[in-house]
Simulated assay, not measured.
Amino acid sequence: MSNLDVALKDMMNIDGALGAAVVDYTSGMTLGTAGGSRTLDLQVGAAGNTEVMRAKIRTIEQLGLNEGIEDILITLSGQYHILRPLSAQRSTGLFLYLALDRVRANLALARHHLRQIDDELEI
């Protein structure tokens, strides 16, 4: 099992996880996925969230902020979607994408677990 497979498995073990992916935001392609369903197509989500990530990075640059993105939270009526750029891999343009069931998830714990996964993942 690769480090990527372990990371995806760990993401799916977070309470309320519906789907997880590691995404290259330079291309919008996934390096790997876990979970998902007919109503949560991770390939479509990865491509759409790539645009979100690119837009936020562009906005930070245009504002001249000396800040990095820790994570981006998208709150839907029934789900949370968390995008977290890989800190050690920023120059390669990878991010973690986790979709959570809003009723079953603990957002603070999910963010904490994603931070740990980010710290341990080597690609």
Rank of each mutant, 00 (worst) to 15 (best):
H81E: 04
A47E: 00
D119F: 06
E51I: 08
R54A: 06
H113G: 00
Q89P: 00
D10F: 00
Q43V: 03
L18T: 02
I72R: 09
L4H: 04
Y25T: 04
S2H: 12
T59M: 01
M11Y: 02
A110R: 14
L98H: 10
A88L: 02
V6H: 14
N49W: 05
L96Q: 09
L109W: 04
A105D: 03
L94T: 07
A7R: 12
Q43R: 12
E61S: 10
E70A: 15
Q89L: 15
Q116F: 02
V6I: 11
V103P: 00
V6N: 14
V44I: 05
V23L: 10
A7G: 08
I82A: 10
M11H: 03
L83W: 07
H113E: 14
A110N: 12
V22M: 12
E120R: 13
V23W: 06
T39N: 07
F95V: 07
L83Y: 07
A110H: 14
A88H: 00
T26I: 00
D71S: 15
E61L: 03
T33D: 06
N3H: 12
P85V: 10
E122G: 12
S27L: 02
N66F: 06
A21W: 06
I72Q: 06
I60K: 15
G93E: 10
G93T: 11
E122H: 13
A34S: 15
D101M: 02
D71G: 08
R111Q: 14
T50W: 05
R38I: 01
V22G: 10
V22Q: 07
F95H: 07
A46T: 09
A46G: 09
L4A: 13
G45Q: 08
T75N: 11
I72S: 10
Q43G: 10
A110P: 07
T50G: 11
S87G: 11
L86N: 12
T30F: 04
